[in-house]
């Protein structure tokens, strides 16, 4: 039985030599069980050792392998070559980020905006260790659990046109984490992160395109996390922060 092959076109950019990116084509033998990541690893191992891309866990939990596959943000470990037939498959770095090398992008913008949303529990009152752990009911956990599943893969940033259009937009994953902590009963709530949420780069930078939620590999639904906070931000604007339930 003859070997099946698929053509992969990879964006190449060498920052030391190139002034702009180009596409390079590889013919990759594959079997039905192979992921696109495995196809790219075949290129690196057998065809072109300089081909550069990020990966780690191979099982859609580390968030390292995000790329554009035929124009759509995907995790390469979770995308299968059998689903991309007959090819060619175009692999490019995540949209809306500067390219460092080949498929690796500069994630600095996300790292900076993530810090600005205070992605950690800001407690309502300081408890001494002797008071023991916080306790949460299943309902309190359910209020934020879905939004805590983010693996920071940045597919939502590649999907969101406002990230591309508005350099001040904090972005889907960071705003989702803003909501995740606001919704956590251990946290002081809205007031801790209001200045970010209320700004043009906060919830008001979102125009509800909704593509972020479609591409999220963990069904976090960033569009929902962001847009349910527009009403809260509006109440805050009119001085009705006290109506925000749980906020202090």
């Amino acid at each position: 039985m003859s070997e099946r092959r698929i053509r992969i076109e990879g964006l190449r950019y060498n920052p030391e030599k190139d002034t702009q990116p180009r596409l390079q084509t590889y013919d990759v033998p594959f079997t039905d069980d192979m992921s696109l990541l495995q196809g790219m690893q075949y290129i690196k191992d057998h065809l072109d050792g300089s081909f550069t891309f990020r990966w780690s866990c191979r099982m859609a939990i580390c968030g390292s392998c995000g790329i554009m596959v035929n124009g759509n943000p995907r995790l390469s470990c979770e995308t299968f070559l059998r689903d991309l037939l007959p090819g060619p498959v175009r692999v490019e770095p995540l949209e809306n980020f500067p390219i460092q090398r080949d498929l690796a992008v500069d994630q600095g913008r996300f790292v900076d905006t993530l810090a600005s949303v205070k992605p950690y529990v800001v407690p309502a009152q300081e408890k001494p260790l002797s008071a023991g752990p916080h306790r949460q009911t299943p309902e309190q956990l359910a209020a934020y659990y879905q939004y805590s599943q983010c693996i920071n893969c940045l597919l939502c940033y590649a999907a969101c046109p406002q990230v591309g259009l508005n350099e001040h937009f904090v972005g889907p994953a960071a705003l989702t984490l803003l909501h995740r902590y606001n919704a956590d009963s251990r946290d002081v709530g809205w007031s801790a992160r209001a200045d970010v949420a209320n700004s043009e780069g906060g919830v008001w930078g979102c125009t509800l395109v909704g593509y972020c939620s479609q591409v999220c590999p963990k069904a976090v639904d960033p569009a929902h996390a962001i847009n349910q906070n527009k009403a809260k931000s509006a109440l805050d604007y009119f001085g009705l922060r006290s109506l925000l339930g749980g906020a202090r």
Partner: peptide, 12 residues
């Protein structure tokens, strides 16, 4: 290290 910034497509 020269990072490369792709322009956003006009008809994205």
């Amino acid at each position: 290290i020269r990072i490369y910034r792709r322009p956003m497509a006009a008809r994205w």
